[in-house]
Design a protein around this nucleic acid. Structure first.
Lengths: 346, 346
DNA sequence: TTAATTATTGCAACCGATTGCAATTTTTTT
DNA sequence: AAAAAAATTGCAATCGGTTGCAATAATTAA
């Protein structure tokens, strides 16, 4: 069988005894082509099993209808929702996603960026790795006027747009809530302060303390990878502390570390929230499964992905200008649950 | 600045006063090109900021170095690990992934398959949607000799390969473990039996019952979407049952439904595992956070993704033949935890 | 020193779709 | 019925890299 022979517009042209030009135009219903001819062309394409050769047209148009996505980690609850939102938005508009993850390594991030650059994505969506210190590897995109959108872990750049939540506000609200509940020695477990998400939450935390006239105590700030282990270790440190030094609450910058810290403390006999209150971040499934349920911040991952992609595509279509909107803030919501409710009421 | 001008091999040729042919060959260190010339070409490419135009070469080679991935849902713990494994394996070998999700809809799956087909991926990796009933939409790939690998939720096809775990064995082991612990009225909460993963686990469940000479009771089989809600609803049904009809254990085909069923029963005053034993599937993070911890099956997602991609690429490179290996079975491991330990020991 | 090898390099056609402009056909106007 | 306007269609060049084959240059053998 000739099943393997690819059908081109020339085959259709020969079949209908017309020119390839007309076929090319007919296939996209170009207004100058007779409606009837268009119909015949579409029909012939169907019969012959034609599929457009995207390379040939990309070669000419220099456009791929492909967006590159670089995330620190695919396998995270939050990020997988971002990707789901991106995928839905992209395919709704006829775009395809190329997804890479840096695995939190700046080196891999650089390689990924280069790959995307060489694959000539029409635009780039990126959330930077844990300890990325500069965006030299993104500069080539700006130079070539390829639009870049940062999301979640952002990086400010005059030609780019960021999509994020108001981390300062979220950090403030979490901390304020803990303060309202009567906690006064609140520890903050967070990640690399180079990252906006962590730096901003810390700022919010400090803001709330200031409001309550509680001096900020550096000894209550714990910086680490926010892993299960990081949570467990903080618990161990706390257990080893003298009572007067021991925090009476923990605000962790993600749920994983919060939960594992909680579990370890519970195991050691501490009551939550009676002895120690807890709040996390992200609203991962574990936050609603752990006992007591974890107070956290609902992070709109799906919506973040959707928003980022829609804005990128609007820019590509010339509907909007990226640099005109340096930042889009999505709504994040404090989810108050038992882990922080010392007073029984709100 | 001429920053925006793309550099082509012709620019390099002009710059070095040699032919484009030589540049093309030199860039890939073709043996007939003088080593020294190669070096000069590479240097010039660097200086001028050349990047290869993949379309132009794909147009000729009919190869994209791109793999298509269709998953039912990106935002699932298990699947996000599969994707991570795929991404690592693919980028290690210089391949790029295009990822789509069907959102458990066969219709979207069809659209996705068409997109991948038109984007001319070199190979396809797919895990089918919840209620896909045929693979007509995949047939075009087979016709064009584009290799297809099914993973997790597979579909047997003579030219294809499947990567999965031994779900029958896993189902058998979970059930046998519950039986060994003294449970005798084990309910099974699962998904659409059209899907191998659910059908096979059920088979294993029946095998274990048979071994213990316990008649299979259809009334103990609950089929649904395996969502949080499905778990809660099963609990409600169980609460409403007469004692003699009530299962003394639940084997759920995923952790989410198991956990939510457990939580609801706990809330209603049932003791786990004293009154009702529990086992789930997947080893999601929630399984280790819920109290008591959930017995489950460790599902090697990352490895599954890696294996699928490596095999696909090996086929593409001509190292192996896909259809020679119809199936690859990965190791899954029963994780025994408190939710199923009625006898205090193993 | 010349012929025979071997190493390098370049010509020109090709992959498949697109597009400006000219050519042809059809329709409308006068 | 002829001229003008509008609707269709096709020619030919182009996008950038690849490759078979011929041409030229450099080495080696005779």
């Amino acid at each position: 069988m000739a099943e393997n022979k690819e059908i081109t517009i020339y085959d259709i042209a020969r079949y209908l005894k017309i020119s390839a030009t007309t076929v090319s135009r007919g296939l996209k219903n170009h207004p100058t082509i007779n409606k009837n001819t268009c119909k015949k062309i579409a029909e012939a394409a169907r019969i012959l099993g034609y599929r457009s050769n995207t390379f040939a047209s990309s070669l000419l148009s220099k456009t791929t209808h492909t967006l590159g996505v670089i995330v620190p980690r695919i396998s995270s609850y939050f990020m997988s929702y971002v990707l789901a939102g991106m995928e839905d938005a992209a395919s709704r508009q006829g775009y395809t996603l190329i997804i890479n993850h840096s695995n939190e390594s700046t080196e891999k991030e650089k390689v990924n960026a280069l790959t995307m650059f060489n694959k000539r994505v029409d635009g780039l969506l990126i959330s930077v790795a844990y300890d990325t210190r500069n965006i030299d590897h993104i500069l080539p995109f700006f130079k070539k006027n390829i639009p870049v959108i940062f999301f979640d872990r952002t990086w400010s750049h005059p030609e780019s747009m960021s999509v994020e939540i108001d981390n300062i506000k979220a950090g403030y609200e979490v901390t304020k809530h803990l303060l309202e509940q009567g906690f006064r020695k609140i520890a903050h477990l967070t990640g690399n302060l180079l990252r906006n998400v962590y730096a901003d939450r810390l700022t919010g935390y400090k803001d709330a303390l200031r409001e309550y006239r509680i001096p900020y105590d550096e000894k209550k700030l714990f910086i680490g990878p926010l892993s299960e282990n990081a949570g467990t270790q903080l618990a161990e440190k706390m257990i080893a502390m003298k009572v007067k030094d021991r925090p009476d609450a923990v605000f962790a910058a993600n749920d994983t570390s919060a939960v594992y810290c909680m579990l370890k403390l519970k195991e050691a006999g501490f009551r939550i929230p009676g002895d120690i209150g807890f709040a996390g971040f992200n609203n991962d499934p574990i936050s609603q499964v752990v006992t007591p349920h974890l107070t956290t911040v609902q992070y709109p991952g799906y919506q973040m992905g959707e928003t980022a992609v829609n804005n990128l595509i609007n820019h590509l279509k010339g509907i909007t200008e990226l640099h005109a909107i340096p930042k889009i803030i999505l709504r994040a919501e404090l989810m108050i649950r038992a882990s922080s409710l010392k007073k029984k009421t709100l």
